[in-house]
Simulated assay, not measured.
Amino acid sequence: MTRAYNAVDADGHILEPLDLWDKYIDPEFRERRPRFVIDDNGKERLSVEGKLLGNPRGIGSLGSVGARQGIVKPGTLKYAEGRKGGFDPHARIVDMDADGIDAAFLYPSLGLFAGAVEDPGLAAAMCRAYNRWLADYCKPYPERLFGVAMLPMQSVELAIDEMRFARETLGMRGGFLRPNPYHGKKMINDPMYEPFWKMAEDLDFSIGFHEGSTTAMPTVGVDRFENDRAARHMVSHTMEMMLVALSVIWGGVVDRHPRLRIAFLESGGGWIAPWLDRMDRHFDDQGFNESAPKTRPSELFQRNCWISFEPVESSIAVLANYIGPHKIMWATDYPHSDGFFPGAPQMLRDRLGPLSAEGKHQVLAGGALGFYGLG
């Protein structure tokens, strides 16, 4: 890479076009492809074999960046009216330039719900179609737009196939998984996933965990806040990520696979320090460490893991000193309604004052470059 990277969005999103699965899905799955529908309440949803996915309030919010600041009124946009850069890479580059963002790593929007698709073959076909489209979206700007592959963990074998295709055919550097359990209550350190982790290590393929706010997958704690959407959002994103971090670190995934790179995304970052401290305390306690990994949890995090903060988190400079600025990333969440656009890089700079110039660079760009294998 010849471009200088001084501000890197580690977790941006695209908006899947309405005809993505019409055009890109393999012919044998065309009749079963996802479809955009209007539900009984007049809301836009994604329908997959009769199951409605996405926010019951409608999926238009996925493109409503600016709602946080009052620039866009929540609930007023239809999905197709969402921020143009979600659909169009050329428009996205204009928005990135306006914010001084040099590169963006791109995750899905509707595809965040794909983990709820029950049939492994259909899930794999959806992922293959999406990844083909995403590669085309990124193609005009190969040094600025980087696709993160969608992986069908409904089948470990099919997830491995798609990871290999994404890496070897499409040239993608990483893929994403939901932190929620895919197979009943089996966490990601279950022995059934060992072939997946071995292949990710062999392919030098980064894995980012990203929640998606749908109760169609097992989601911890949301049953306690059935009538409070904000509370469910807070619970699902942060607590599911804490559990998968526990599974990856304490559960031994990165202990067994020392070259893996794993990130915990869109869940805030402030929880990681006390969570690592708690793991370390149990590691040191002879009465509690019968299931501990061989290596100290905080050391495993330093070797193998990264975490993404939101640009408005006031603790980011303190945590950068605590866990190391090179282990921290940030994200715009563009073009989602709770995203940070415009102005995310400046929000970060305003909070990074105590850090050295090198520390600031690591948070703004170096952490993401290291995680995705560009550094």
Score class of each variant (00 low, 15 high):
235 V>D: 05
280 D>C: 03
149 A>C: 08
296 R>F: 06
239 M>H: 10
328 I>Y: 00
332 T>D: 04
141 Y>M: 09
93 I>D: 02
285 D>N: 15
293 P>N: 09
189 N>H: 15
290 E>Y: 06
171 G>K: 07
288 F>R: 15
25 I>W: 03
319 L>Q: 05
232 R>V: 12
153 M>R: 09
85 G>C: 11
33 R>N: 05
84 K>Q: 14
163 M>S: 07
83 R>W: 00
332 T>K: 01
342 P>S: 06
227 N>M: 12
349 R>T: 05
90 H>E: 15
289 N>V: 14
66 G>F: 03
319 L>A: 09
89 P>K: 06
164 R>I: 01
66 G>C: 04
146 F>L: 00
179 P>A: 04
220 V>R: 08
243 L>Q: 09
328 I>M: 07
63 G>M: 01
98 A>V: 09
368 A>Y: 02
200 A>L: 12
319 L>M: 07
187 M>S: 09
134 L>C: 07
202 D>I: 01
174 G>S: 08
324 G>F: 03
17 P>G: 13
169 T>N: 14
136 D>V: 05
16 E>T: 12
137 Y>P: 04
81 E>P: 05
249 I>A: 06
83 R>V: 07
167 R>S: 03
294 K>W: 13
356 S>L: 07
299 E>T: 11
45 R>L: 04
292 A>C: 14
315 S>V: 07
277 D>W: 13
229 R>C: 12
80 A>W: 07
290 E>M: 10
45 R>V: 06
94 V>I: 15
32 R>T: 03
163 M>N: 11
168 E>T: 05
30 R>T: 15
87 F>D: 08
198 K>T: 00
347 M>G: 04
91 A>F: 10
314 S>F: 11
225 F>G: 00
7 A>G: 05
171 G>E: 05
52 L>H: 09
206 S>R: 02
232 R>A: 06
327 K>M: 06
272 I>E: 08
117 V>D: 04
107 Y>K: 00
287 G>A: 15
223 D>W: 15
121 G>Y: 02
13 H>L: 08
328 I>F: 02
295 T>L: 09
327 K>G: 02
32 R>A: 10
97 D>V: 09
370 G>H: 14
69 Q>R: 03
375 G>T: 12
288 F>Q: 15
326 H>D: 14
21 W>N: 01
62 L>A: 10
124 A>C: 14
351 R>Q: 14
173 R>S: 00
10 A>P: 04
92 R>Q: 07
167 R>D: 01
288 F>N: 14
33 R>Y: 12
192 M>V: 12
40 D>N: 15
321 N>W: 10
286 Q>H: 13
76 T>R: 12
103 A>E: 03
177 L>D: 01
120 P>K: 00
316 I>K: 02
104 A>L: 11
282 H>Y: 12
69 Q>L: 12
115 G>D: 04
169 T>M: 12
234 M>G: 10
96 M>V: 10
217 M>Y: 13
11 D>W: 00
253 V>C: 08
133 W>F: 10
207 I>N: 00
